[in-house]
Design a protein around this nucleic acid. Sequence first.
RNA 1: GCGACGAUCGUCCAGUUUGGUCUAGGACAUCAGAUUGCCAAUCUGGUAACCCGGGUUCAAAUCCCGGUCGUCGCACCA
Length: 487
Amino acid sequence: MVSYDRIMKLSLERGFYFPSSEIYSDSPAGFWEYGPNGNNIKNKFIELWRRELVRRDDMIEIDGSQIMSKNVFVASGHIDNFSDPVIVCSKCKSIFRADKFILETAGIDVPERVPNNEVDKILNQYNLKCPKCLSSFQQTERFNMMFKVGIGPNNDEAYLRPETCQTIFVDFTRIFKIMRGKLPVPIAQVGKSFRNEVAPRQSLLRLREFYQAEIEVFCNPNQLDAISKFDDIQDTTLTIDEGTKVSKLTAKEALDNQIIPNKLIGYYLSILYEFYEKTGIDMNQTRFRKLSDQEKAFYATIALDFEVKTSLGWLELVACNYRSDYDLSQHSKISREKMEIMDPVTNEKILPHVFELSLGVDRSIYSILEHSFAEDHENKRVVLKLKPYLAPILGAILPLVKKPELEEIAKNIYCNLKKDFDMYYDGSGSIGRRYRRLEEIGVPFAITVDYDTLKDSTVTIRYRDTMEQRRIKIKDLKSFFEINKKP
RNA sequence: GCGACGAUCGUCCAGUUUGGUCUAGGACAUCAGAUUGCCAAUCUGGUAACCCGGGUUCAAAUCCCGGUCGUCGCACCA
């Protein structure tokens, strides 16, 4: 298996991703840039997500704000649940998690959501001091994983969203009305979320600013098995890890065996699976893992993670949570906005439930890179076997040697194709070197203009994975790329 | 956030032990030119780095302190 370090090296050398603000010594951890190649892959990944999930399932896609008011997160529970009590030594400024500290020193098991004054009381009562300098602690504070921002001259309290889905929840009633929604109605969004991670690590795998592609399926909780399109995917084979046992079985079998609770969840897990199949990730190295009650988020009643095996172990790519009506009822309560809707199918007035597929884009990109990376020792080359529709560049136009008559034709071909496809022109160095360079960033096709081109207007197509070469007429190139850029 | 270790061209590494030889060297990559009829060829020339701040010293890539970042472990991952 390719190591994390090897992918990291490739990324730095070839511009997939690299640290943000790296010329400054005070640049914070957990922020990374996509370079030209990485950005192209990311855009194409998102476009594939749209094709295979959003358009396939007639989803509605929105693009919401990244900064949202305090009340949004009071309602969502993030103000309360997303923070840890923290105590700071008044002298040496050492920081401790209050609940852990009290458990370790006084042996008292306080809940994570313990009020600040309660912590202060316990510290006093048991005379707990800083273990490093034996000084007393300052008043208990909260460390919140959300980034707080101040709006306007008064610095009104607001936050960068820690998950994209909250915009979907707060917008739900308007979207449902204007789009003449019928349950189940999936609403999708791709965008950035922000979490003030304590220890961001491993580049794209734990970021403070990251892309999520989320799908919130609003549904009638009484109609979870009334999904006729389940039949389309019932033979999709899923690997499901229930903690005690791992089963590989079709969606239908999983449903029959109660491993999946209903058709709606089965359907969405299956189309998610089929989407990832198309990314080039080795599906034998993936699984859905049922989360235990301890692992589940506070809003989830059923939770499965879609995970992929990488050199760093199993990596969570998609959180699939049945959030019930938690979010809508909370937003309804705090905003005093009625969020019940008429289900036109059953003529019931209900508060919809939500099943979500919360996908981590950056982790997916990393996994695709790792699973696409191949070292071809026989030919002494490194090949990134990206699917053509995910490759940062679809094709490169190369003059065989540096001769004006070949370069002119090659540049013409390049100019004729570059508006329709992601093309690249390279005329420097030996032809073999150029092939090697291209396959390292995953360019699937190289077009070489040679001396035969002058005679019969054909060029060589070289295939990245097999190194095979075929001749094709210049005028047929457009349709060749048209066909080959499709999933 | 804690602890251990580390940080030199785009990448990998030498130089730090024992301060002066370093206006920092090599390899790969890259750029320009020459050459080249298809898989990292060759020749010539070029670009390019001591993480940041402070201190010690006649003198710091090298020693000391602080910060930042990175790797690993713990914790965290709603």
